[in-house]
Structures are given as C-alpha cells and as structure tokens.
C-alpha cells in the first residue's frame, strides 16, 4: 500500500511539475528560450494570491485574479524583454534571464520580506478512502485541476482557430505570417499562457511548502528535468515528463535509503544530464505539431 500511496503522491507532485514544465515548454516552443525566471514568476503569482487574500478576497477569486495578472505579466515580459532579444546572442539572452531571476527573487523579498507565510490550500484537509487506499483530497484535487487545464489546452489547440494560429506561429513563423497569422501576437499569447500555467504550479505548491521567496527552487529543478525528459519542444512530453519525474522522485526518496528525502534533488540532476547525453531531444522531442 505504501507503494500505491507513493505513486499517487508522486502523481500529485508530478502534476505540479508538469504545469511548470508546460510553462517552460510553451516559451521554448514559441521563442526558443528556456525561461530561467519561470519559477520566480510562479512564486510571485503565489504571493499575489496571498496579497489579494490579505486585502479581503476569498481564495478562489484571488487565485483566478492572480492567474489573470500572471497572464498579463507574461505577455508584458514577452513584449518588453524577450521580443527585443530575438536576435541577440546566447550570452545576452541567458544573462537577461538570469538578471530577471535575481531581480524577481529580490523583489519578492523586498515586497513581502523573507519570513515564511502560510497560503491556504484550495482543497479541504480530508482523506478519501478508495478501497484500501487513503488519499488526501488535496492530492486528488491537484491531479484533477491539472488534468482539467490540460483538457482546456487540448481543446484550445485542436478545436479553435486561435489554437491553430498559435501552433502555426510556433512551428513555421514565416509561413504563418504569409497566411495572415499575426505571429507576434500569437507568441505574446503563448508567453501569457506560459506565465498562467506557471502561476498555477506556484499556487498549487505554496500550501505544501509555505510561501517564501525560495520556494520554487526545488520545483523549477524538477520542472527542468521534466521538460528535458519530455523533450523541450513537446507539450505532451512536458506532461509525461512531469508525471514521471514526480513518481520517480517519490519512489527513489522512499525506497532507496541511501538517497532518501535529502538527496532527491540529485535525481533531477541525473535525469537532466542522462537525457541530454543519451537522447538530447527527450522522449517526445522533435515533433513540431502540438499534440496535447
């Protein structure tokens, strides 16, 4: 039973990693940039929820408003910082993103101090009894929320004209431009969605680790591992990678005492270097069309 419980907990962690990995994959597919600051943006989104709640809003509206703000912030980041960088050399791109990472991290410390804060969970603190398994509602809820978001994204990309235009803009920008797709606007929306997905991961993880400026360090590592494992340009890969990383990380932490909970982070390092050395495109890389 321990095994089944660990797998389910792993899936919940994995769902959080998957949403952040999806955010990374979104920005990578549209602009070829690995957004090092994605985790810090997600952390700010979680703080935004906390701030809105201290101003008196209930949790759910605060969450939705924070996700909307994150969408706008992601789009603004694309317009203000990423688009001007599209022709810059790699060192400049990396430096600007690292600069952003440092600045956002300090900004959170500046605005909300470094002392930890509690963010309430979106789900009640109870356990579900499924047969012999006892699973917390939070675990099930996280998996359900991320699954719903994936379904929405699938519908967006496969069933709407906007989704088609976004896929076109990401895969072949020149041709898309020729058939009348406003490519920059599509990339703008892509970065917005990425930030919104990141916000979701931040808001889901904050109740589990407490709100503090360094809370995403652990998550972003696993998200990097998930995105690498799945292939950086693949959305389905980010999801599968996220779930795999979550499960593997939990099982390794539980069943290999030599590694234990302290050294779980090394799993991410090994996964990243292993994937990049053995199969640099990841499990699902190189597929140019989004399949969600």
């Amino acid at each position: 039973m321990l095994f089944a419980n660990q797998v389910i907990d792993g899936l919940a962690d994995g769902a959080i990693y998957a949403s952040l990995a999806l955010a990374l994959a979104f920005s990578y597919r549209s602009t070829g940039i690995v957004n090092f600051a994605q985790g810090e943006m997600a952390m700010l989104s979680a703080y935004a929820v906390w701030q809105l709640m201290t101003w008196g809003l209930p949790l759910v509206p605060a969450t939705l408003i924070s996700i909307a703000i994150s969408f706008a912030a992601g789009a603004a980041l694309y317009a203000g910082l990423v688009k001007p960088l599209s022709r810059a050399n790699l060192l400049t791109v990396v430096s600007v993103l690292i600069g952003l990472y440092l600045a956002l991290n300090s900004l959170a410390g500046f605005l909300w101090t470094y002392s930890i804060k509690a963010l309430p969970s979106l789900f009640p603190k109870a356990h579900l009894q499924i047969g012999p398994l006892s699973v917390s509602i939070e675990t099930v809820g996280i998996i359900a929320v991320v699954a719903c978001v994936l379904l929405l994204l699938y519908l967006l990309f496969e069933r709407t004209k906007l989704g088609l235009a976004m896929r076109g803009a990401a895969s072949t920008p020149d041709s898309a431009e020729l058939v009348g797709v406003p490519v920059p606007a599509m990339l703008l929306i892509g970065w917005g969605i990425a930030a919104a997905l990141g916000a979701l991961s931040g808001i889901l993880v904050a109740p589990r680790v407490f709100l503090n400026p360094t809370m995403m360090f652990g998550v972003i590592i696993y998200a990097f591992a998930a995105a690498t494992l799945g292939g950086f340009d693949s959305l389905i890969g980010a999801v599968v990678g996220g779930l795999l990383v979550g499960v593997v990380e939990n099982l390794v932490g539980t069943y290999i005492p030599w590694i234990g909970p302290d050294l779980k982070i090394v799993v991410a390092l090994i996964l990243i270097f292993g994937t990049l050395l053995i199969k640099p495109d990841g499990l699902f890389g190189r597929r140019k069309v989004a399949r969600l």
Binding site: L91, T92, S95, V96, I98, G99, L100, Y101, L102, A103, L104, N105, S106, L107, A108, G109, F110, Y114
Partner: peptide, 22 residues
C-alpha cells in the same frame, strides 16, 4: 539599505551592462 536590494542590484546590473556595455 535593504536586505533584498543586493539581488535586485545584481539583476539590474546584469541586464543594464549587456544593454549599454556588452
């Protein structure tokens, strides 16, 4: 001046250096 200013200065210095003094 402020505990968090260090990282902020680093981040801004990095971006500004690359923009005006590559």
């Amino acid at each position: 001046i402020d505990v968090s200013l260090g990282g902020l200065v680093f981040g801004v210095a990095l971006i500004v250096t690359l923009v005006i003094l590559p």
